[in-house]
């Protein structure tokens, strides 16, 4: 019984680990990283750390999305299901740019 429980716990924790998003902050009107490399199926979490609203969007062919606007402390998640290069910006502050490389 204990062994079964341990196996279930191990399975859950391994699943939880693989589902952990890659966190990208938005601070001082910049993304906290310029580039990230992820795999197809990975989730990216954009977290606003500035005391005003930010946005996240991309018009890239690989991923066309708009995560809307959100205030300090909030985040938006997005999972990428196609390989390619994705240019990400904040529409409110266009100097905020970053690139996501999604690989197979």
């Amino acid at each position: 019984m204990i062994l079964r429980l341990l196996i279930v716990m191990l399975f859950l924790s391994s699943n939880a680990y693989s589902a952990s998003p890659v966190v990208v902050g938005q601070k001082d009107k910049a993304f906290t990283v310029e580039t990230i490399n992820i795999k197809v199926g990975d989730k990216v979490r954009f977290k606003n750390e500035d005391p005003f609203f930010h946005n996240v969007f991309s018009l890239s062919d690989t991923a066309f999305f708009d995560l809307g606007s959100f205030p300090k402390g909030e985040h938006r998640d997005i999972t990428f299901d196609k390989a390619g290069v994705i240019d990400v910006e904040c529409a409110i502050h266009p100097s905020m740019k970053m690139t996501i490389n999604v690989k197979e």
Binding site: N55, F57, L59, D66, G68, S69, A91, I92, P94
Partner: peptide, 13 residues
């Protein structure tokens, strides 16, 4: 700005 960046938030910005 919407004419350049067609994101809803930019309509009238």
């Amino acid at each position: 700005r919407y004419a350049k960046v067609p994101i809803k938030l930019m309509k009238g910005a």
